[in-house]
Design a protein around this nucleic acid. Structure first.
Length: 429
RNA sequence: UCCUCGGUAGCUCAAUUGGCAGAGCGGGUGGCUGUUAACCACUAGGCUGGGGGUUCAAGUCCCUCCCGAGGAGCCA
């Protein structure tokens, strides 16, 4: 009977078959200790020369790191084995031999590992991170699906920049120019006017020449958008959503967080309500702390870290100077120099994980903004239609998946939070 | 684009003031019946990123180019 390693505890005393790869090997005289992995975990298999055929003994002896094999034997409970269970091998079958596997059980540099990302994903730390990523994705989908949101995916090809500022990847589209999307938001606005509560979840692209641990050129973003929701509503949504996602990972991926040596207590503090401060209050804190922040500009990485350090859970900063936020942000009726945007900063220096706010719902205001930003009006006619035909107040946000996973995992660089990271100087493998 | 740091064996790194190119891991060979990144012995392995220069002598100093890292800007 074929079983997976994570099912071993239910098969003590039984003869089973395990199919996997050799993770590591140790030997002592006529005894071989094979550490097997099959994607669900690691298990030690012991091969005693006295218990196996001459051929199988030769196989055990010659197995190299990452050779694939099928081992048959009896599961026993043994405190000496890592994980507590081991397989007493009766027979061994080599499936595919691995020659000179480059990633040894010692340390390697980042460049070396990234060049071999297709093999690096076989290692334990990467398993843990990628499982947390998968859990976060499934928590995000469940959160919205169970609350009446409709998945409303946005196109990847767009004819124009959503927000004039950032650089887009350009591509040829049947003789015309097209760009890879940097946000699905405008399309979500159309979606929420149709289905009330919608979200999209997919890759997004930024051609920024950013070489930092917080940036990828291709990353995943989830973007909910809700009709008849104001800024307070979207802040409530963002904090409730973040709390749920973190709680889900704590509940189901404790093993992985342990492998990653994540400080669990810091994640357990992620409970509503999150602190909410205005841009002006944030600016006051930065002035007190003496950073070189200049009032009226956006916060730099160091500023974000200082702000996040003031709180033990994510903090939301709202009511930004209108000039530094996107054209579609609604102005604060109480102070037209402010826009009703909100950013959420993750604790522990992980930076901005959410950006969102209330959208401009007035046709006249939006026309004015498009003109002020020198945006090509013809590409925005459909967007203006949303204000012409039954406009309503509406709000939404975007959450960066990889930054969120990096924060939850407690790893410094977001490049390990996606199977194959795309960065300024890395398009392969 | 700018700033800073780096490139030496397959990998991770060392090499004093400019003075014989080294170690651990990995590979190979042998040993060991309870190993835990096992251990022990032996062994192979080098155009010190490329080019130019200074010097009796360059991994080391100078110029230049290439490659990478993470920080700024910008952002999720």
């Amino acid at each position: 009977m074929r079983i997976y390693i994570d099912q071993a505890s239910g098969h003590v005393g039984e003869e089973v078959e395990i199919a996997g790869w050799l993770y590591n090997k140790r030997s002592s005289g006529k005894l071989r200790f094979l550490i097997l992995r099959d994607g669900t975990g690691l298990m030690q298999a012991t091969v005693s020369q006295a218990d196996v055929s001459e051929e199988d003994w030769a196989v055990a002896d010659e197995l190299t790191q990452e050779s694939s094999l099928i081992a048959t034997g009896t599961i026993t409970e043994d405190a000496r084995a890592p994980g507590g269970y081991e397989l007493h091998v009766k027979s061994l079958q080599l499936v595919g031999r691995s020659e000179d596997y480059p990633i040894t059980p010692k340390e390697h540099g980042t460049e070396f590992l990234l060049d071999r990302r297709h093999l690096w994903v076989r290692s334990q730390k990467q398993h843990a991170i990628l499982r947390v990523r998968a859990e976060v994705i499934s928590a995000i989908r469940d959160y919205f699906d169970s609350r009446g949101y409709v998945l409303f995916d946005a196109p990847m090809f767009t004819p124009n920049a959503v927000e004039g500022t950032t650089t887009l990847f350009e591509t040829e589209y049947f003789g015309a120019r097209a760009y890879l999307t940097q946000s699905g938001q405008l399309y979500q606005e159309a979606g929420c006017m149709s289905l009330g509560k919608v979200y999209c979840f997919g890759p997004t692209f930024r051609a920024e020449k950013s070489k930092t641990r917080r940036h990828l050129t291709e990353f995943w973003m989830v973007e909910p958008e809700v009709a008849f929701m104001d800024l307070d509503g979207v802040m409530e949504l963002a904090e409730d959503f973040t709390q749920e996602v973190v709680a889900r990972v704590l509940d189901r991926r404790g093993e992985e967080l342990k492998t990653l040596e994540r400080n669990i207590a810091a994640l357990e503090r992620v409970k509503k309500p999150f602190p909410r401060i205005t841009y002006d209050e944030a600016a006051r804190i930065l002035k007190e702390k003496g950073t070189d922040f200049t009032y009226g500009s956006d916060f730099g990485g160091a500023d974000e870290t200082v702000l996040a350090e003031q709180f033990d859970r994510p903090v939301m900063i709202h009511r930004w100077p209108a000039g530094i936020k996107a054209f579609y942000m609604k102005r604060d009726p109480d102070d037209p120099t402010r826009s009703l945007g909100v950013d959420m900063l993750a604790p522990e220096g992980y930076g901005e994980i959410i950006g969102g706010g209330q959208r401009e719902d007035s046709l006249e205001e939006l026309e004015k903004r498009i003109e002020e930003h020198n945006l090509p009006r013809k590409f925005f006619e459909w967007y203006l239609d949303l204000r012409r035909y039954g406009t309503v107040p509406h709000s939404g946000f975007g959450l960066g998946l990889e930054r969120t996973v990096a924060w939850i995992c407690g790893i410094r660089h977001i490049r390990e939070t996606i199977p194959f990271p795309r960065m300024m100087y890395r398009l392969e493998p």
